[in-house]
Amino acid sequence: MSFKLPELPFPKDALKPIISEETFEYHHGKHHQTYVNNLNNLIAGTEFESMSLEEIIKKSSGGIFNNAAQHWNHTFFWNSMSPNGGGTPTDKLLEEINKNFGSFESFKEQFSKAAATLFGSGWAWLVKNPDGSLSIEQTSNAGTPLTDNKTPLITIDVWEHAYYIDYRNARPQFIDRFWEIVNWDFALRNLG
């Protein structure tokens, strides 16, 4: 099957000034599009052509894995944000966060630190583990928690291309502002 670049779940200017329209033009229109194009080119005529994206991610390596996982990660990242986002998680999600991290504030602090201290390019995630507990994960480059059978709830992209136009080298500022647009409804749905 051939993969398509998904539409952003909000207009390109909906998250400014936290994330500019210019950043989305490159990040969604160029970077994400390139991963989709590369993936389609790489799987053409291979066993992966008939697989779902998740299957490809779990069974492939090298270039196919990198492009498939980046396609998945970026789609998940767009959904992790919303113009109506921010605030605090609700219901069961808030209970689980309190249970696993002590408090929402403590969770935010740990997640921000994981995102800020990741070496090089990568992602920080809130995930649900197979035993039901929540944890914070860092993945490098195209890495994704899917390969460890973990269920991602939200993610933040800390590749430099995610924030360089708007924040330059100041990655921690980008992370601070992310809390104003994080989509807790999406996270709650992922918690199941």
């Binding site: 630190k113 800020a116 201290t117 924040y167 080298n169 100041a170």
Partner: peptide, 18 residues
Amino acid sequence: RRNIILNTGIIGSAMILG
């Protein structure tokens, strides 16, 4: 806007390393 970001980036570059 670029300048504002640049000028506030000093703290960020230190924090990024913890």
